[in-house]
Design a protein around this nucleic acid. Sequence first.
RNA 1: GCGGCUGUAGCUCAGCUGGUAGAGCUCUCGGUUGUGGUCCGAGUGGUCGCGGGUUCAAACCCCGUCAGUCGCCCCA
Length: 437
Amino acid sequence: MSKDKQKKKIYKPKPISGFPEWLPEYRVVEQQWMDKIRAVFESYGYCSIETPSVEELEVIAAKGEDVDKEIYVLERLQADSNDKKDARLALHFDQTVPFARYVGQHFNELTFPFKRYQMQRVWRGERPQLGRAREFYQCDIDVINVDSLPIHFDAEVAAICYEAMDAMDIGRVQLRISNRKILMGLLAHIEIEDSVGVTRIIDKIEKIGSEEVARILKDDLNIPSDQIQEVLTLVQTKDIPSIKALNDEMQEGIDELSFVLNNLKHLPDHAIVADLSIVRGLDYYTGTVYETRLLDIPEFTSSVCSGGRYDDLASNYINKKLPGVGISIGFTRLFEVLHHYNHIKAGKKSPADILMVLPSEKQRALASDTARTLRNRGFKVEMYHAPQKIGKQFSYAEKKNIQYVWIPPFEEGNAHEVKNLDSKTQTEADPNDWTIS
RNA sequence: GCGGCUGUAGCUCAGCUGGUAGAGCUCUCGGUUGUGGUCCGAGUGGUCGCGGGUUCAAACCCCGUCAGUCGCCCCA
């Protein structure tokens, strides 16, 4: 062994911005949350599917040029010069598009209405910020049907997502619900052409205020003042039944939204609110739209759970009309934001219930047998890795948040003992009938 | 992709108007014989983001570059 001073070249590890990872004590919480979401989704009979991380670029890019710049494409480091260009693969940037493709592809094998959930990572090449990553988990739940889909599903998916978030102990959340037909109906009635442009500005009303919205609509889009007033008045109305429909589209939107709200009456008061300023950009949404706020973290104003209804998302892939409605829980966003504001209590660093002390090499077989007995009885038991000083073994248990330290007899004929590190009590114990008290 | 701010130990940071690096926490070991969190002691750990320039001398000044971060666009 030479004592050379020359150091090994170390590549200094650093986090990759936008690609979050967690220490064990937070990862365990992340998994618990996912389990809870899954349990709630399944309690309503939604099944799980998983699609590949990649889709053909053509499938993904179908959504429009605006998202193009956010798409990561997959490429081998040394691509052959004769690789086909038209079969490029790209990482999916949401789960709705892959879902639509999936339904189109497996149409004949699925039972409709098809209700599924999907909890996977998605990738977007954006500038990362708090609550905005480049690789993140979404928990999508959608229902899709042939020809038409009953409106009560619009209420059901909202109720499911509320229940799922409520199960995670993340404080109060509020779903804000709107129906695009109401605003679009008005815009059509007053003959505003650029509905996409208008809705995009309206979407910012809470962030920049109604005066600023009015100014932009006037200065940038040349909308007449009286029309702006009409739009702003509508968008700030909280009392849906009081709205006067100016055409069929508006009436339809009002009816649908009222129905959805009525079907969510069983939820707590703060949980659901109508908000006509929610329009969700220029998406494929055609009716109900949702956003969700964390009421206990007012500093964070972005939505943590959004979605809506779409008329025929899969029409690109199959010659059928397949309307659907769905919501996506922004899992990583939720987790990151709550972690940032210290709303997440760290979990245990180890899943083990018990640390089995290894008194000496001679007692390894005994310790190992005892551990096996306890495992067979359902306990999670970690064997200490070396016959080191007992103090060291205790401090290891302490550091890993393992509550019980099991001490096998140091000498034959003596009793086993267990110490509870929380209560500091130590008692004799039999591995065949000991229980956590 | 565009604009503001920031890059010193694993983490949080100090380092005065340029004189070749420090603290706290973490981590490792020790404070004797079979018992953890506290306390005490010691130790490991830094091409001062990277490259160039000015200077006798640069963590500090200048230029460039990269990265991070906040805001915008957009969105979960």
